[in-house]
Design a protein around this nucleic acid. Structure first.
Lengths: 110, 110
DNA sequence: TGTATATACATTATATATCAAGGTATAACG
DNA sequence: CGTTATACCTTGATATATAATGTATATACA
C-alpha cells in the first residue's frame, strides 16, 4: 500500500465526512463543529468547504436538502452509503500516513 | 495556536529535515531512506524533493557540499541551526495537527 | 432607528505543493 | 552491450487551500 497523492490534499474531505457521519448538518454548522471538536486547530475556510461539499455531492458521497428555521435557509448534507465507504477508506489512509510520518520523525534525534 | 496553511503542504520539508537531522545525506539517499524508514509509505518523487532541498538551502536551513565516491558525484546536505529550529517547530505543528485530526475522527461513529 | 455582528449560502483569483514526465550522465550487472 | 540502478535536475499539469469578494437575513446593541 502506498500513500496516494490525494491524501494530504484530501484531509478536508475526510474531516467533512467525519462530521456528517455523526448526523446531517449544513455548511456553516460544519465549520463551527470542526473548530469546536478540534479545539480550534481547524478553522476551515468557506472557500475550502463549499467546493468540498459540492464535489462530494457530485461523487454521490453526499445528498443535500434545504430546510428553513428561524427565517434562515440551510442546506443540509447527508452522507450516503458511498460516502461512509469513502470515510472508512480515508480514515485508514490517514492512520497509515500518520504512522509513517511518526516513524520517520521518530528517527530524528531532534 | 492555529494550524498554518503551510502545514499540509509542508510535510515534505519536515520529512527531509528529519532525515538530515540524523546525518548529512544526498538527494537520492534521502528518497531511499524515507522509503525505508516509512516502510514504503512515502515514495517521494524527485520532482518533489529537489525543489524542497533548494528552497531549504535558500532559506538557510540547509548547506550543501559535493563529494565524489565510486565515481559518483553526490551533493550532500547538512542541517544548519536554523534548520533544526524549523524541524522542531514543524514537528510540534505536526503533533498538534494530527492530534486535532484524531480528535475529529474520533467523534465519527464509522 | 441605525449599525455592527453573526449566520448562511456561494464564486473567483491566486499561491503553492506534488506529481508525471522528461533530460543528462556514470556505474554495475548479466 | 543493453538494462538497471544511481545521481543530479527542470518543466508542465493538476489540485487544493486560502483570501477576497458578493448576496442576504436575523440579532444584539446603542
Amino acid at each position: 500500500m502506498k500513500i496516494s497523492k490525494e491524501l494530504l490534499k484530501g484531509t478536508g474531505a475526510t474531516l467533512v465526512l467525519s462530521v456528517l457521519a455523526g448526523g446531517d448538518l449544513y455548511g456553516y454548522g460544519i465549520v463551527k463543529t470542526l473548530a469546536q471538536r478540534s479545539e480550534d486547530a481547524f478553522a476551515m475556510n468557506e472557500g475550502t468547504l463549499y467546493p468540498i461539499l459540492h464535489a462530494l455531492e457530485e461523487e454521490g458521497c453526499l445528498e443535500s436538502y434545504w430546510e428553513t428555521a428561524d427565517g434562515r435557509n440551510r442546506k443540509y448534507y447527508h452522507v450516503t452509503r458511498k460516502g461512509l465507504k469513502k470515510l472508512r477508506e480515508n480514515k485508514e489512509e490517514w492512520e497509515y500516513f500518520s504512522a509513517g510520518m511518526n516513524r520517520v520523525l521518530g528517527y530524528s534525534p531532534v
